[in-house]
């Protein structure tokens, strides 16, 4: 499945990669996801919308709703953690890419991947602490969420957000979400005190500074 790449294109891409590796892109606005772990019913309409939008075969899942449960009968609990690509401030996938296919957008901070440059080496998959890059065997490439960049450019929100039946998933400027200043249905006023950068069993956000926030379940908080 060896793929012929344009050498000139790769050279340019690698220059960009080196630049962005040593001096992380500071986007004008860093967009990120906010997900309410408690109010989410785990219906996975977002996952289906994502599969349809990106035309994915069974196997690769750009967006993954994880079901968490615990306790002992009858004192049990359950919540959902919903994650795709976290469009990190310092993405670990980016320096790992040998062809420079991955780069970060200056305008909105979306970490994008140029699939024509991807050789399917899967190094980004290994580097990402959150499991975002997804290998597509039949195409021998890795692909991932690009926050529906075409929809963003058209002034709309990504398919997953627009699919959410409970209105618990949203995107917005991450700094405003942190302050609770962003107007969204993902959290209520009461939820604002539960907005966290990390939930239990999630990789340390210090690694890459992911652009995602959660309204955490009491049992999901990192103490």
């Amino acid at each position: 499945m060896a793929k012929k790449l344009d050498k000139e294109q790769v050279r340019e891409a690698l220059k960009r990669k080196v630049r962005q590796t040593y001096e992380p892109v500071k986007p004008k606005v860093q967009l990120g996801f906010i997900h309410n772990n408690v109010d989410c019913i785990g219906c996975r309409a977002c996952e289906m919308a994502c599969k349809d939008k990106n035309g994915l075969p069974p196997g690769p899942r750009f967006r993954r709703v994880q079901y968490i449960e615990g306790g002992t009968f009858p004192k049990v609990y359950a919540y959902k953690v919903n994650m795709s690509c976290n469009h990190c401030a310092e993405p670990a996938c980016l320096p790992a890419c040998p062809t420079g296919a991955i780069w970060k957008r200056e305008d909105n901070g979306v970490v994008d991947i140029d699939s024509t440059l991807c050789i399917g080496c899967r190094k980004c998959e290994a580097a990402c602490p959150f499991g975002a890059p997804q290998y597509i065997p039949e195409l021998n490439i890795v692909s991932k969420c690009n926050m529906c960049i075409d929809e963003l450019e058209a002034g709309r929100k990504p398919y997953c957000v627009m699919a959410c039946m409970m209105r618990v998933l949203d995107i917005g400027p991450i700094d405003q979400i942190d302050k609770g200043a962003y107007k969204t249905t993902a959290y209520s006023d009461a939820d604002k005190q539960n907005i966290v950068r990390q939930v239990k069993n999630m990789a340390n956000p210090e690694l890459t500074n992911p652009s995602i926030r959660f309204v955490a379940h009491e049992q999901g908080k990192v103490k």
Partner: peptide, 14 residues
Amino acid sequence: SLATARSAVYRRDD
């Protein structure tokens, strides 16, 4: 025999 990549339920006791 389509893929049934089960979306695992994670049990968290700690």
